[in-house]
Design a protein around this nucleic acid. Sequence first.
DNA 1: GCCATTTGACCTTGT
DNA 2: AACAAGGTCAAATGG
Length: 574
Amino acid sequence: MTSSSSSSFTDLLASSDEEPKNRITNNSKLSDRIAERTGSGVPKFKSIPPPSLPLSPPPVSPSSYFAIPAGLSPAELLDSPVLLNPSNILPSPTTGTFPAQAFNWKSSSGNSLQNVKKEDKAFSNFSFQQPARQPTTSSAIFQSSNSTIQPEQQQTWGFQESAKQEAFVSERNSMVKMEYDSNSLQGFSPEIAAIQTDPQSNNGFQSDYGNQQQQYQSVREQRRSDDGYNWRKYGQKQVKGSENPRSYYKCTHPNCPTKKILERSLDGQVTEIVYKGTHNHPKPQSTRRSSSSITASNLGMIPAAPNSNPNEIHEQSYVTRGSGQMDSSVATPENSSFSVGDDDFDSQKSKSGGGDDFDEDETEAKRWKREGDSEGISAPGSKAVREPRVVVQTTSDIDILDDGYRWRKYGQKVVKGNPNPRAVITTYEGKHNHDVPAARGSGSRSLSDHSNHAAMAIRPSAVNHVSRNSIDNPVRDQRVPTTTTSEGELPFTLEMLQQSPGNFGFSGYGNLTGSYLNQSSTDEVFSRAKRELGVESLWVYIGDAYTTGHVGDGGLNGSKMEAGWSLEITWCAS
DNA sequence: GCCATTTGACCTTGT
DNA sequence: AACAAGGTCAAATGG
């Protein structure tokens, strides 16, 4: 880290020493989570038993899932990604159907798959009222799903706190392990579906309403048709660097090229699911109907998408790779690669503390190159295992971000010592020398466009996502840390915001929280930032990332990450 | 005997 | 070209 300016992340944070401490204190579960992620003890998915073992007692009291310490940050609660936006809803990679209901379900904060059966009646009088304004950031999820929801909203939605908590738990469980590598929207995998139907994951909620016997399918049936498709396991492999065995499945349909790779933790919980290819056939008819077949749409909350499969829940998360930014018009399994979860953690699964220099901590070999460009430079990125994630890999690795441009990731790097591996910064550098692809419609969007902005905030665990498309940025000449030294490029980092007049409020966790929970304030901040920075477009995504570090001004390679940011750089693919 | 899973060997791909 | 790691094959195994 350079000692350049007094307004570096670190300095800023140092000046508000209490804040970080409070964070840690308030987020009492964070350490546990980190421990989990670093493999020190706690099961990654303590609340989710293997689908095939539905009758075993919960390893952890269900109530513990609700143990949300007062003051716990939304980000913490939203450890799992779930910010959905209709515009980004993509066809299920496995079904080709659209997950519209999932989004609404999430945003409505009220329903879990498990409680649907009876909730059906319970909510008969439920009046779903969308907030006057669509949530534009992951805060929307927080607001709608966690217990800190604002009173007036609670009243409006007519939910009892307990009900919301249950729903929340369900959501968390449902997200169990899907994450992100950046990307997007995805259909819940069979395993996820199984998890969701797991009576243990719903805090016994189901036992009060449903016939568990009916919910428990034979192991065989579960394996084969959780997502409606039949799979045949054709291999298993122990992957280096992970204690979790990886199983390989093929769709049993003749000539169907679809495969999926499933990784499970030692206790049988699904930690990652990767789909490859798309089904070239309709989903096999299934006579079974499990509890998981009930979705929000069944409640009449939202119209089910055409051809939607009630057995599926779709998640969409914003990830730095950005495939999750694609909208349905362009995002298809054929042209996209996306995942749900926190893939940013994956590369750190075997890493721990350190605070070493950036260059010394690269673990992620993944490299993407700009389309049509043979050169590739290493860039930071992070990966660490923690929540289950679902990744869909298709026939292309080019993602279309919400800014409308096509991007190809070419590098990723992880920095040791990152107190929060999920802290990821995506920095857009330079200036496009072309217009936004027509496929995306209008030009780049600005924060003032809330509907579009919302579309970008897919992952609650989001990312510090700063985009700058103007070349006349006033802060251009500032001596600020950057993530690149490329001449002519205009790196615009989160730190710039902090160094900018007024400190837009991204230097501290408390501020982040405030941004999440107070949309109007966020708007004001953005508006102010754009005005004072003189940029046309300013996008900032802040998930549960700590802003406890910053990139040194020595450039990407020469920078030192005091606290360990995970960086990711994406080149425009156009 | 059937079918799905397991598992060691082999193949492919990336560095 | 060599090596490592991931992915796939196919015989063995078990229900």
